[in-house]
Each structure stands twice: as structure tokens, then as C-alpha cells.
Design a protein around this nucleic acid. Structure first.
Length: 542
RNA sequence: GCCCACGUAGCUCAGUAGGAUAGAGCAACAGUUUCCUAAACUGUAGGUCACAGGUUCGAAUCCUGUCGUGGGUACCA
């Protein structure tokens, strides 16, 4: 609909060149009386033309070459809105479009030929994925899927570090538990990893090697076994959520491939770094940031900034048109320095989009649960999936805007009841399947021939909603807002349930029944396409 | 102190690409089933869009300040 109007206005600029001075946009009015689409173009021109906006609106309308088979009413309303009402024939056309495009309906090829990378999860292998990681994982995966839906070819990448202090502590933790199982009396330090999973890893080592590892360095077999076990659990968890990574990028390779040295040299040669107090500093203050920061500590070890810059340079070199990073808000401070460093080295940071999602707060029994991987005071994604299922987990993480804090009410999520929006959507889909099973028995089939009989209020509303699906996907993808899809589907499901209550199929006159079958089939296709984007299942029976 | 995000109904949140009378779910209350799945539908009630200024034809939306919440502010990531 918007495309059609956009085209009309474009043609009109030939006669009214002042239309070029403003950005013409169309919005869906809140109330139905205001039409299907509306534009404020006339009001935006009042200043320039110094005329009454309603007069300007009339001028605009007069210059539009309108096909009355498509638009059956145009009004000037309120202070100067131009409201467009689309004809029923035009609206019902969407049903056939949806049938023709099937599972592709909603997708576009707007960005086809372009490559994107989405980096997400990126948790170091020190413990199982928790609810905080879960939000990141599901959002990242959905952002990637949405980009695919508008034509990008997308790589999903997981960046991790299996070296460093955290991992040393992990090895130490496993060794200590190993000794404990062998009967040694130990005291387990508070800053070691407390989780039960550590004991399990140790137990497996005892099973396999008995006491032969007593003199083994914690950084040897112990760390290795822990990393392997934990990483395999993480991949398994992601798999249960339907998430498959294209690649796992190990920070270590940046050292072994000398990428770190390379970046360091480039900064040095460009005079962008200097030594002070035994450390190497990056002149971020000259790059527009607040203050200089250390990139190599006096111990000779780089800070996270250096490998992060080197990693991003690798991504630039791989030729992506769009580079998306998704972090929790606790990492929000890291990226301005990283981007400034990349820009200073000549890379086009316009290609990078850094998405920050806010924290997940767990509320259990009305109390906020503070979580820490180290203290093993956490709820894992595995536990959550086993209690509520992957569909609910995914949907709950997607349904809220990522920049608001998510209150995850555990008691509520565990409850499988009608309070749950996931079931509401799935039920709409299952209900349609059920109706279709019944109508088939009655010998009724969908038909495009009598779509003009779809004039009931809820039918018209459904048709208009269906029209919007491709736009919703495009918006959600371009602005990285997966929750828009969830909101849209809830609206659509709600309209369908109303339709179900008010409009019967079996028992209606045959032509009408067949038109309605075509309508609900197209609703089902859209529900399914939407749920598929979110990787939530669309059952035929519930 | 400084930086970032957020503050909308009792609760959880949409709405923020400036637009017309601010919405949904849950909870509360009252209804709907001889009829394609009641995991549904209808109605009632619930609001100083944190507060105060500003920008303009028009502000929940943009700007400034105040208060509150969370995160960051390291030679941790």
C-alpha cells in the first residue's frame, strides 16, 4: 500500500515540485475513520508555502493520478491530514499474493547480494549459558534471521577466549574438586567456580584417569577437559534453541597469527600510541574520545581493546557490508574505543552496528535473584528449557524491546497457562488447522473467486493486517527490533480469534465459506512465516 | 562526579521514523459454549505518559534540567 502511494506521489512531483522539499511519509492511523494510510505532507509544507494546510492538501490531491479501483476515498481531515481509503478489491488481492508467495511472503530481496556478520553470545567457556546469555543468544539469532529475510547472506559468529585468568581459575577449580573426590581434604576458595558442573567434570576425570592426574598442572588436562566439556554443553544448549553458529572465532588466533603485533605496529607507525609508566597507551583523545586508554599493560599483556580491534579488522577484511555486534549493557563501554581504533586505521565504521541489550532480572517468589557464574547462583538455559520448552524461552526473550530491562518472572514462565502469549499465537495457528480439517470433510475448499464477499469488519481488518507483514519485517530488520515481529503476530492472532468468534465458515453460504477459507489459509501462512522467523513452532494441534 | 539506557494502568510491557480521542496482556469485576478447539471472545473499571521548563500549528515521542532505577566509568572483559 505504501509503495503504491509512494509511486503516486513520485509522479505528482512532476507537477508540484515543492513536494520534493519534504520527506513524504505514510502512517497507519490509529482509528479506522481516518482511513488506511495517512500523510501529513500538507502540514509540513505550511511554513514554506504560507498557506492553509487544508488548501495545500487539496492541491496535492488534485495532482494525484488516482485509480479509483484501488483507492476509493480520499479525505482531508483534522488540521490537514490526507487520508486514503483503499478499495475492498485491492485489499482482498493480498490473499492471492500470500498464496503465490507462500513461505516467502514477507521476505524481500532488498539487500540481496550483500554479506553481513552477526557476532553474539561470545561467552567464554567457564560455565553453562545462563539466562543473561540466553537473551543475547536468542536476540542475536533473530536479528540474523531478520537480516536474511531482507536479502542479506548472514554469518553467525561466536567470539571467545579460552586463555587468560578466568580460564586459569577454571582449571584450578577442577583440579581442586578432583583432589577432593580422591579423598583429599580441601578448602574451596570463594573466588573459584562453585558450580556443580565443576564437580561433574572432575568426576569424569577421576573415572577416566583415576589418581594419575595428581601431579598434572591445572592448566593442562584439567583446563582442557573443562573447556571441552563446557563448550560442548554450550553448543548443545544453543542447538536446543535452534541456534547454529557458522563459526567460532578464538581470540587466541589473533596472537598466534601475529595480528595483535600487526595492529600494535600500525598504531606505532601512525604515531597513535605511546609508552607511559611501562604500558602502551592509545591516543583516543586525539580520535575524538574522552581519554587515552591502555592497550598493553606494563606486564606486557594486552588489554581487551587491542584484540577487539584486531578482531574487528579481521571482520572488515572478510568483506562484510554489515557488521553487527550484540552485547549486554555491561559491555557497553568497550565499543567506542574499539570503533575509534578501527576508524583511525582507516576502516569504515559505518558498516558496524553495535547493539546493546539490557539485563535480564530474574524474579522468583517476588524477589530479585542476583546472579553470578562464579558463585553458581544462576539459572541455566538448560534448566529453563526443560521446564518451559524452547518455544517459550525464545519467545520470552524476543517479545520485549532489547533496550529495556527484562523482568523474567520465573514462576510465571514455568506456568504453562493461558497467561502465556506463546500459546495464544500457537493456538491461533492450530485452530486454523483444525478448521481446515473440518471444512475439508465438508467438501469445502478455498477459492479466490468470491473474495469480494469478505466485507465483515473483522475480515477487512484481517486483510489490512496481512498487508502490513512485509513492512513489519523490513522495519524490524533494518532497525534491529525483533520484538516488532512478536507484537505484530499477537495483533494478527487477536484479529483472527475475533474473526473466529464472529464469522463462521461451516454453515455459511458456500461462496462466502470458500472465500473465508482462502482468508484463513493466508492468515495461517503469515502466522507460520512469522513464527518461523522467531524459530517458534507452529503446531497443527494443541 | 562523569557517560549510557530506562521511567507509560495495580503488575509485565507496546506505542518513541513529531501527528488526530495514549493501547495490549495479566490481575479485579460482570458476561458468552445446542454452533468450525473456551489455550477463545465481549463488557466494566483502571492514566498528571516520573517531575519542571523549552522547541512548534501539534510532544509520551525532540532539547535542557531535576528525581528515581539499572549498567559502565581499571594496566578485568
Amino acid at each position: 500500500m505504501k509503495e503504491y502511494l509512494g509511486q503516486l506521489f513520485l509522479e505528482a512531483t512532476k507537477n508540484l515540485d515543492y513536494l520534493n522539499d519534504i520527506e513524504i511519509n505514510f502512517s497507519v492511523p490509529r482509528t479506522e475513520e481516518h482511513g488506511d494510510l495517512s500523510t501529513n505532507a500538507a502540514m509540513l509544507l505550511t511554513k514554506k508555502l504560507k498557506k492553509n494546510p487544508r488548501l495545500i492538501a487539496q492541491g496535492i490531491i488534485d495532482s494525484l493520478n488516482i485509480d479509483h479501483n484501488i483507492i476509493n476515498k480520499i479525505e482531508i481531515a483534522g488540521p490537514g491530514f490526507i487520508n486514503f481509503h483503499f478499495s475492498a478489491t485491492y485489499l482482498t488481492g493480498i490473499v492471492k499474493t500470500i498464496f503465490d508467495e507462500g513461505e516467502h511472503f514477507g521476505k524481500s530481496s532488498k539487500h540481496s547480494g550483500k554479506k553481513a556478520i552477526v557476532e553474539f553470545v561470545s561467552a567464554n567457556p567457564t560455565g553453562p549459558l545462563t539466562i543473561g546469555h540466553g537473551r543475547n543468544a536468542v536476540l542475536g539469532d533473530t536479528v540474523a534471521t531478520l537480516l536474511e529475510a531482507i536479502g542479506y547472506s548472514v554469518d553467525r559468529e561466536y567470539y571467545f577466549n579460552n586463555a587468560g585468568r578466568q580460564m586459569r581459575v577454571l582449571g584450578d577449580s577442577v583440579k581442586l574438586r578432583y583432589n577432593e573426590i580422591l579423598g583429599e581434604k580441601i578448602s574451596f576458595p570463594e573466588d573459584y567456580y562453585q558450580g556443580e558442573y565443576i564437580k561433574e567434570i572432575s568426576r569424569k576425570l577421576v573415572d577416566e584417569y583415576e589418581d594419575k592426574l595428581r601431579d598434572e598442572n591445572p592448566e593442562g588436562k584439567f583446563k582442557e577437559a573443562a573447556e571441552q566439556s563446557i563448550f560442548s554443553d554450550i553448543k548443545n544448549t544453543l542447538g536446543m534453541l535452534g541456534i547454529g553458529m557458522n563459526s567460532y572465532f578464538n581470540e587466541n588466533t589473533l596472537y598466534t597469527d601475529k595480528k595483535i603485533d600487526e595492529v600494535l605496529n600500525r598504531f606505532d607507525k601512525m604515531g597513535l600510541s605511546y609508552e607511559k609508566e611501562g604500558a602502551v597507551w592509545l591516543k583516543l583523545s586525539e580520535m575524538g574520545n574522552e581519554q587515552d586508554k591502555v592497550i598493553v599493560k606494563s606486564t606486557g599483556e594486552p588489554t581487551y581493546r587491542l584484540p577487539d580491534i584486531a578482531y574487528h579488522i579481521e571482520k572488515f577484511k572478510r568483506g562484510y557490508d554489515l557488521i553487527v555486534d550484540l552485547f549486554g549493557s555491561d559491555h557497553a563501554a568497550t565499543y567506542p574505543d574499539v570503533l575509534a581504533g578501527c576508524r583511525a586505521l582507516g576502516y569504515d565504521i559505518q558498516k558496524v552496528r553495535v547493539l546493546i541489550h539490557q539485563f535480564v532480572t530474574i524474579v522468583e517468589n517476588g524477589e530479585i535473584v542476583k546472579m553470578s557464574t562464579r558463585k553458581a547462583n544462576f539459572i541455566t538455559i538448560d534448566e529453563l528449557i526443560s521446564e518451559v520448552g524452547a518455544d517459550v524461552v525464545r519467545y520470552f526473550f524476543i517479545m520485549r524491546n532489547m533496550n529495556t530491562h527484562l523482568n523474567f518472572e520465573l514462576d510465571l514462565a514455568k506456568k504453562q497457562s493461558d497467561e502465556n502469549p506463546v500459546f495464544y499465537l500457537q493456538y491461533a495457528h492450530a485452530r486454523i488447522s483444525s478448521i481446515l480439517r473440518m471444512t475439508e470433510k465438508e467438501g469445502l475448499n478455498g477459492s479466490f473467486e468470491y473474495l469480494n464477499l469478505l466485507t465483515h469488519e473483522t475480515e477487512v481488518k484481517l486483510l489490512k493486517k496481512l498487508f502490513l507483514f512485509p513492512e513489519e519485517i523490513e522495519y524490524a530488520a533494518e532497525y534491529f527490533e525483533p520484538h516488532k515481529i512478536a507484537n505484530y503476530l499477537e495483533d494478527l492472532a487477536s484479529l483472527f480469534h475475533k474473526f473466529y468468534t464472529e464469522c463462521r465458515i461451516i454453515g455459511s453460504e458456500k461462496k462466502l465459506a470458500e472465500a473465508r477459507i482462502a482468508l484463513i489459509k493466508s492468515v495461517q501462512i503469515v502466522l507460520k512465516n512469522g513464527l518461523t522467523l522467531l524459530k517458534v513452532s507452529a503446531p497443527d494441534k494443541m
